[in-house]
Design a binder for these strands. Structure first.
Lengths: 151, 151
DNA sequence: CCGAGGATGTTGAAACATCAACAACTGCGG
DNA sequence: CCGCAGTTGTTGATGTTTCAACATCCTCGG
């Protein structure tokens, strides 16, 4: 039982900023996407990740890791997206436990229609306010944070 | 109607990293706090913000802005925390519409008990992986992003 | 070959967030 | 003083996430 090492001023400042971003940024992204597509940002990311995959299909586990979500969350999300006809499940040929999530043509169409508005919102919320150096630093710092989040 | 300006490589890299963090970081923070206190991170932030305020009281609107949340979300959260006896509502003396959220002694005790574990988790997830320069850059970049999130 | 333990996904209930609608109040212009 | 527009905060319905429990299948040591 050691005594707590508290945050210094710089750390606290960074943390307060980051905490507010963690609160408000997903909400802002959700708002825009829901208006244009009816689905939240987490669902959009699933479609977007699938669209870039081989044959527009991914194993559930890989998809979960790529998007940064949990199996349960993904399972519910895929069920909802499947019901809209935007993706479908297939059995995994090599592993009978596995499930493949595959983007349908309808899902691809929704994605393509929503992409411009989404990119514009990402620019408005993030990149419009950053210099190229800021972007490079943001990329570097976030890259250092990711490993601790995926155990 | 202009043609979309897509993200370049550096922007896309930063965005993919950030998107994953926006997904997984709140989940990770929630996990730890829920185990120790039974409340999610968003609720903890409310208590923490109140603890630093004058008289441990804040107007709902100010509290919402400080935490980066919406009035509705805050209203539900405060109701839940009130039921646990960790804060209470009072009428605002200067404005009959207003409500003050005030941290109770019980709420303060919970906060103090949870703080060390929470700080340790924040260190484990974030600051353990960053140099002091990284922290300063993170603080600067996040500061640039906040204004666009609070309208 | 077989059985234990790990991996993969799903399910249902409870907690939390979002949205739209609303009630109550303020303050300002006429 | 009146009334109307804007502010403040709540509520309930709906959608999403979390957690725990579970079913199924793979792998590997014995």
């Amino acid at each position: 039982m050691s005594t707590t090492r508290w945050l210094d001023d710089d750390e606290m400042g960074a943390w307060l900023n980051l905490a507010q971003i963690l609160m408000a940024m997903p909400a802002a992204l959700d708002r825009q996407l829901r208006e244009d597509t009816g689905i939240p940002h987490a669902y959009y990311q699933i479609l977007a990740t699938l669209s870039a995959a081989d044959n527009r299909c991914l194993r559930m586990t890989e998809l979960a890791r790529a998007v940064g979500t949990t199996p349960s969350r993904l399972s519910h999300a895929v069920a909802s997206l499947q019901q809209r006809g935007w993706l479908e499940r297939r059995a995994c040929p090599s592993d009978k436990r596995g499930q493949l999530a595959c983007l349908t043509d309808a899902g691809m169409a929704v994605l393509e229609a929503a992409a411009p508005g989404h990119v514009a919102e990402v620019r408005r919320l993030i990149f419009d306010h950053l210099t190229p150096e800021d972007v490079a630093r943001l990329r570097a710092v976030t890259a250092k944070l990711l490993p601790a989040l995926q155990p």
